[in-house]
Design a protein around this nucleic acid. Structure first.
Lengths: 146, 146
DNA sequence: CCATTTACTTGATTAATTCAAGAAAAGCCG
DNA sequence: CGGCTTTTCTTGAATTAATCAAGTAAATGG
């Protein structure tokens, strides 16, 4: 009975426990900020012949139930991470797209007050820091991920 | 000689002054947060037969030179706006995707200090507020834009 | 162990964006 | 003003991420 925690998490949210879902959870745990293609690759190293579509479905289900968090910086495809509930933020490299976590220094969500909200009911403030990662500062235009 | 300001802006950035570019600037001025399709539509009302590609190229050129700002909230296509240089932020409706401006309450960019930057050299902090717009609060799932 | 519901597979489709090559227009210079 | 060079636009195709749809398979509840 490996990784009982993941199974319990799935059950707690009303999702059935399946191999693809466990594999996706492991993949996201192993590769934070991985995109769908990366998750699919990781899943297939342990499960081979899991469909493209299954991974999309699983990631959608996990995102909907709050087990994973989806981020999508401008110019990037959707990326997923396990850290949920702490409203941390991200820094994205303009050169290579690498993403790193930034702890929220203010408080709980929405951790920034908006001045004039134009009547919107705001439930989250998402901060994306933009800059250049250490690798690209020295060697420009390397296309690494994370 | 209509809109001399736009021409001067283009010249100042080293871009040639063309009808498509002037039309795109007018379109973005008229429809803040418009996506490419909307800009293309607006451009064609006054210039008809401007290519798809021209609008992409123009928007890229204007973005590169800083005359317009591109935003791309998760789940949305690229959107463009004229307000540049003041590092204001945006609130996005989770239901219909509507976008509104939010003034930055802290200061100049990067207007939020990151705690541990992981070695990234940060030049901007972009804040996206998520919530429900006034229209969707009363009438759910309306697909308006802006 | 069967029935029902949820999840996955397969294969096609959509939508936004980008690529590529040639034609046209803008700005520079004499 | 008229040609030259460079930038920009047109045309048409290709790419990529993501979604749709229908049928099959697997998981949970009884």
């Amino acid at each position: 009975m490996p990784m009982p925690a993941a199974e319990d998490l799935l059950r707690a949210t009303g999702l059935r426990v399946t191999q693809p879902r466990l594999a996706v959870l492991r993949a996201v745990a192993t590769s934070p900020h991985a995109d769908t293609a990366t998750v699919l690759g990781a899943v297939r190293t342990e499960l081979e012949s899991v469909s493209h579509q299954a991974v999309y479905d699983v990631l959608d289900a996990l995102t909907r139930t709050g087990l994973v968090r989806r981020i999508q910086p401008a110019g990037s495809v959707a990326r997923y991470e396990l850290r949920v509930g702490d409203n941390h933020h991200h820094v994205v490299c303009r050169a290579c797209g690498a993403v790193a976590d930034i702890d929220c220094v203010v408080g709980s969500a929405p951790c920034l007050d908006a001045s004039d909200t134009h009547g919107f009911v705001i439930d989250e403030a998402e901060v994306t820091y933009w800059g250049i990662c250490p690798a690209c500062t020295t060697a420009p235009s390397t296309a690494s991920t994370d």
